[in-house]
């Protein structure tokens, strides 16, 4: 569904993405992991067309993304920081996005109802807590039932209850054959919904594998343990050189 080949992006001297080649399929939930500055955000921004890479290509369903912006209407994006014009109400934000996507007439209101946003829809964005703003961002991402979801740190500001609700929703959508790209640093949060893991470091893909496969090869059950084991092995390998 998404094919990334030899993607390279530098900011000055800093290599944010270094010859990244990845392929994502439908019906998978991919966790993008890696330390700060490893290139996670640059990667998803490249897919969204917000960052323009120097080299390499991104092909979504056979179309090179640079040739046309319309592919983005098939992506639901939930940004890491949800900042909106301060004096807009929740309703205005949602209405605006709906107006911009006139071609879509069927809305997925499940999260809006689940988070109870309708009750507070006349509150301005300024008056909302960070968590509530995250909820608004999540709702917007799911509103048009897109094929691809890109969620940047989706659970970071959410309370446990909402977090569960969102994860449940992700599971449900994936079952319909949707693709999820999720970045997160809280590994345990993603344990139960992740099918694949991409680990980035210094702009390079360290590994890209199925979770079950990883669990099997490391003998660990918890996701963060899995990662830790792999990293240690890497260190060991590094040390032998």
């Amino acid at each position: 569904m998404i094919s990334i080949t030899h993607l390279t992006k530098t900011f000055g001297k800093f290599k944010a993405l270094d010859d990244v080649t990845l392929h994502f399929e439908r019906g998978t939930t991919i966790s993008l992991l890696g330390p700060n500055g490893s290139g996670k955000t640059t990667l998803i921004k490249s897919i969204l067309g917000l960052v323009i890479p120097e080299k390499g290509s991104i092909i979504i369903d056979g179309d090179e993304i640079r040739s046309n912006v319309s592919y983005r209407s098939r992506i639901g994006y939930m940004p890491q920081i949800g900042r909106y014009p301060e004096n807009m109400t929740i309703k205005q934000v949602i209405d605006m996005i709906k107006e911009m996507r006139k071609e879509c007439t069927v809305y997925d209101n499940e999260l809006i109802n689940g988070f109870g946003l309708t009750a507070i829809q006349h509150k301005t964005m300024r008056s909302l807590s960070g968590g509530t703003r995250q909820k608004v961002s999540a709702c917007l991402a799911f509103l048009f039932s897109p094929d691809i979801y890109i969620l940047d740190e989706p659970t970071a500001g959410l309370d446990p209850l909402s977090s569960e609700l969102l994860k449940e929703k992700i599971r449900k959508e994936r079952a319909k054959g949707k693709l999820f790209l999720i970045t997160s640093h809280v590994l345990s949060d993603l344990d139960d919904i992740t099918s694949h893991i991409v680990y980035l470091q210094d702009g390079k893909v360290m590994f890209y594998n199925e979770v079950d496969e990883l669990k099997r090869s490391t003998g660990e059950n918890k996701l963060n343990k899995v990662i830790a084991t792999i990293m240690q092995e890497d260190l060991l390998i590094d040390a032998t050189y």
């Binding site: 969204l48 917000l50 319309s70 209407s73 940004p79 949800g82 900042r83 014009p85 911009m100």
Partner: peptide, 16 residues
């Protein structure tokens, strides 16, 4: 500058 994230969000909605 304060609209930066908002701009990103809208660009992700296939706004040119």
């Amino acid at each position: 500058f304060n609209s930066m994230e908002f701009i990103e969000l809208l660009l992700a909605q296939s706004v040119r």
